[in-house]
Simulated assay, not measured.
Amino acid sequence: MAPPSTTPLKAILFDLGGVILHIDYDLTAAAFEKHFGIVGFASRLFSQGSQTQFVDAFERGQISAQQFVSELRSCAAFDSDERARLSSASASATEAIEACWNAMLLDMPNERVAYLRTLKERGLRLYLLSNINATHEAEVDRIIERDVKGGVKAFRDCFDYIYYSHHIGRRKPDPDTFEWVLSDIANRDGLAKDEVVFFDDSIQHITGAKSVGLRSYLVPKEHNLVDVVDPVLNSEHQ
């Protein structure tokens, strides 16, 4: 844990998945193995800690959803007839792949969103920085509409600005991503780096943030957001 600072905190930069949104990476790996025969999905293609180049490109907005699906089709481990079916442009094949890809996205507890509103009422500025792609953004919006009172608009209104990796062309844990976001926050709202604190559930992202001097805290897998954030705000002389 970072040592307390004498600079009062004025803003929080949150991660999305694993902090506000419930996710389970293993469900996507299991779905691709079951439905497409992709064994070792987590170690070969995508996990919380690492990912292959085409997933990285998708999260940076450098390839389209169609190109991403094509890359995943090429990884399917079935016989030639089945591979040909999956390589077709059929909507059913695309939908099946996207369903597997979205399997990790679970739910958004309404109480977490309510807590974000209380932070806003306390005068804090809130920002969101997420490694996310176009397919997942659409699914997250569907989940928010289902789970959160007021839907997507109410959720987005909790934040002063939302930084999605596939929109900004940058992703965590690259240090230049944090530098760019902090510069944008400074330009938008006049906040210095020392006035911002970052919460994320991936250790590599915490390491990247700390490398540029951003106060950062790792969120445990099973957590109550209030119990994670409030002690930090209190200890940081908010």
Rank of each mutant, 00 (worst) to 15 (best):
L116Q: 08
A57W: 09
S130K: 11
F199W: 02
E71T: 09
D227N: 15
R44P: 07
Q238T: 10
I132L: 11
A186M: 04
A103K: 06
A96Q: 14
S43A: 10
T207G: 09
R112C: 03
D201H: 00
D174W: 04
S211Q: 02
V212E: 02
A134I: 08
Y161A: 15
G49N: 14
L119S: 00
I206R: 01
R156A: 10
I185K: 04
G37A: 04
V39M: 14
S235P: 08
G61N: 05
S43Y: 00
I97Y: 12
S235Y: 10
D227I: 03
V19T: 00
A84W: 15
Q66M: 14
E137P: 12
G213M: 15
H136T: 01
R122L: 00
P231Y: 08
R156P: 05
E59A: 00
A2P: 08
R142T: 06
Q238A: 09
S64N: 07
D227C: 12
V152L: 12
Q53A: 15
H167E: 10
S211G: 10
K193D: 09
H205S: 09
Q238G: 05
L72A: 05
Q53R: 14
A134Y: 06
H205N: 15
G17Y: 01
Y115V: 01
Q238S: 08
T28V: 05
C100T: 03
A76R: 01
E139H: 13
V196K: 09
S235D: 06
S216H: 02
H237E: 14
K210S: 06
T118S: 13
E195P: 03
E195N: 12
L106Y: 09
A114K: 12
T207D: 11
K172G: 12
L27Q: 09
R85H: 10
E95P: 13
Y161V: 11
L16C: 05
Q48T: 08
D194Y: 09
Q62D: 11
E111V: 06
